[in-house]
C-alpha cells in the first residue's frame, strides 16, 4: 500500500485493514475510536487500486457519514475497515511517521 503525500509503501497482512497495518508498522494515523468504525476520523481517498475494492459493509457505510460532507465521495473509505486484496494507493494528509522516541540513557549499575 502506498500512502501519499507521505510517500511510504508498506505491506499489509491478508485480511488486515489499512490503518491497522500502518499502525503496526509505526505510522501515526488520525483516529479517535481506534478501529471501531465509529469516529470516521481515519478516512482516506483511494487514488489507485489494482483490484476492485470490496464494497463498504453497513458498519463502514454508517461511519462514513461521520466524514465531513465536503470530503465525502465514492473513493473515500475508512482506513480502519478497508481490507484491500491488491496493490493500492491512498491519500491522507495527516498520516505521518513519528520520529523515534529517544531511549532513556541507561544508568550505571551500582
Amino acid at each position: 500500500m502506498r500512502i501519499e503525500p507521505l510517500g511510504e509503501t508498506i505491506r499489509l497482512r491478508p485480511g488486515e485493514p489499512l490503518m491497522r497495518g500502518a499502525q503496526r508498522q509505526g505510522l501515526s494515523w488520525p483516529t479517535i475510536c481506534h478501529g471501531q468504525a465509529f469516529c470516521g476520523q481515519c478516512w482516506v481517498r483511494v487514488t489507485d487500486s489494482a483490484e476492485p475494492l470490496p464494497e463498504p459493509d453497513a458498519k463502514e457505510r454508517n461511519a462514513l457519514r461521520a466524514v465531513p460532507s465536503h470530503l465525502q465521495g465514492p473513493t473515500v473509505r475508512l482506513a480502519c475497515q478497508l481490507k484491500p486484496t491488491g496493490t493500492i494507493t491512498v491519500e491522507r494528509a495527516q498520516v505521518s511517521r513519528p520520529a523515534p522516541t529517544p531511549k532513556p540513557e541507561q544508568g550505571q549499575a551500582e
Binding site: M1, L12, R13, G15, R20, P84, I88
Partner: peptide, 12 residues
C-alpha cells in the same frame, strides 16, 4: 497479492 505481508495472519 504482492503487497500482502506473507507473515502472521490477522487474528494470529
Amino acid at each position: 497479492m504482492e503487497t500482502l505481508d506473507g507473515g502472521a495472519r490477522v487474528g494470529d
